[in-house]
Design a protein around this nucleic acid. Structure first.
Lengths: 251, 251
DNA sequence: AAGTGGTCTAGACCACTAA
DNA sequence: TAGTGGTCTAGACCACTTA
């Protein structure tokens, strides 16, 4: 939440041109007032709230200001809006949440730890079934397979496997990934179009257990990400985190 | 993406009042054009793009329209904006993603399966350490502990443990939760203020393994959620999903 | 001091949809 | 057909930041 402009201070004192109506001139204050009425139960779940025109008149601001406030609330799933019908308080709350997925480097540095990176594998390889489907390639199309550790203060924080489709990417050699994580190279190499994320739990095994320093079979959090350039998938990454890792989201 | 208004059809033909400038009258079309220039590499990561005034003049629309388009792109993390400095293409892309977290009932019904619910436990109990911290209560404060299965076509889909703080909630009996999931009751019982989510991997054990029908030690995806009413946390839920479950997010 | 984005306003037209 | 939200416009003032 940003600080409100000084002008808002005046809005806090009720001015009563038509009998007690507050002036709520900024869209944040309108949003706050609407939220207050919903949370106080004054506007119950499922109920219609006043129209933009009515609210603008009551609160002493332009309709565009009310519209901005209600639009934000609709984007957050607090209300639902339909033309000709009106604006309704959502019945089932909090079904949409924004997940921050910082790069591993900034995530680790933000926690005050020193970021470390170590390449543990680089090869040309035919894709696994999962990689084949994710990258939309054939079983004999050779992909670049990069494996790496991300470290926080020298301790394993994440182990990552990335498949890259060399047909859709600039030429690249092992040396490049000894210096920098594949995602940082990718972001500089190409403008990226679209990405898809999947989060799941699985059991650590083989290299994963080895490089995370945990016993085989330990549950790990897996994040899969496919990134497109134009209409082509160019990378398929699997990041594996030890059990202490948590994805946090706050509304 | 919603269908564009018919008016937009006209914007597609370049009108050249001042030498080739397109008219892009809707904020979606301005956003699309800016995105195109970023993805084509015309505006590289880290580069400053033209000011709102310049873009409005070039594209033949009001500055407010350009502002709306750039604001949306900033919210999605595509550009970064600072007063007096200007608008920059973000260096590290795609670090923010929206996760849809539908209620279990609607998620299961949307997949075409029949939703089922079964209460497997109801008790007054002192909180575990985790629940104590989440609900901000003392070690001897008795909480309501509800355990339940959510089923898809009769098959275990999720096993859930919910701690409720009776001091901050209307009175409730076991019978209530035999009929409906705690979250559905909660949403009707109180206007909810705020929630916090954590996602992690852990090993199934005891009741969890039993009710999900999987061996002890199987990795499960855990979603913890704390919900507030006013300034008080009222519920702490832990949902556990078998390994086949995936959280999906698309941009 | 000056230039950028952030927002408000008043009015207008349009799109969608229930009645 | 009428009422609701969705958006655009042109102008204005302001907040924040660099110089």
């Amino acid at each position: 939440m940003t600080r409100l402009p000084d002008r808002f201070a005046h809005s806090l004192r009720p001015t009563a041109p038509d009998g007690g109506a507050r002036r709520l001139n900024t869209w944040q204050s309108v949003r706050a007032e609407v939220l207050r009425r919903i949370r106080s139960g004054e506007w119950a779940p499922g109920a219609l709230i006043p129209t933009e025109h009515e609210l603008a008149a009551e609160l002493g601001c332009a309709r565009a200001t009310v519209n901005r406030a209600l639009r934000e609330l609709a984007e957050n799933g607090v209300v639902e809006r339909r033309r000709k019908v009106g604006t309704r308080v959502t019945t089932s709350p909090a079904q949409r949440t924004t997940l921050e997925m910082p790069s591993l480097r900034s995530e680790i540095e933000a926690s005050g730890a020193e970021y470390g990176y170590k390449l543990t594998g680089f090869a040309l390889s035919v894709p696994t079934d999962t990689a084949m489907r994710a990258l939309q390639v054939g079983p004999r199309d050779e992909m670049i397979l990069v494996k790496a550790q991300h470290l926080a203060n020298g301790r394993a924080h994440c182990w990552e496997t990335i498949w890259l489709n060399p047909r859709n990417l600039p030429a690249v050699s092992r040396e490049v990934f000894e210096e920098q994580p594949a995602h940082e190279w990718l972001a500089r190499a190409l403008p990226l179009t679209r990405s898809r994320l999947a989060i799941m739990a699985e059991a650590a095994s083989g290299d994963c257990a080895l490089y995370l320093g945990i016993p085989d079979g330990t549950p790990v959090l897996a994040i899969e990400r496919v990134i497109w350039h134009e209409a082509m998938p160019v990378s398929f990454a699997r990041q594996l985190y030890p059990p202490r890792h948590r994805l946090i989201s706050e509304d």
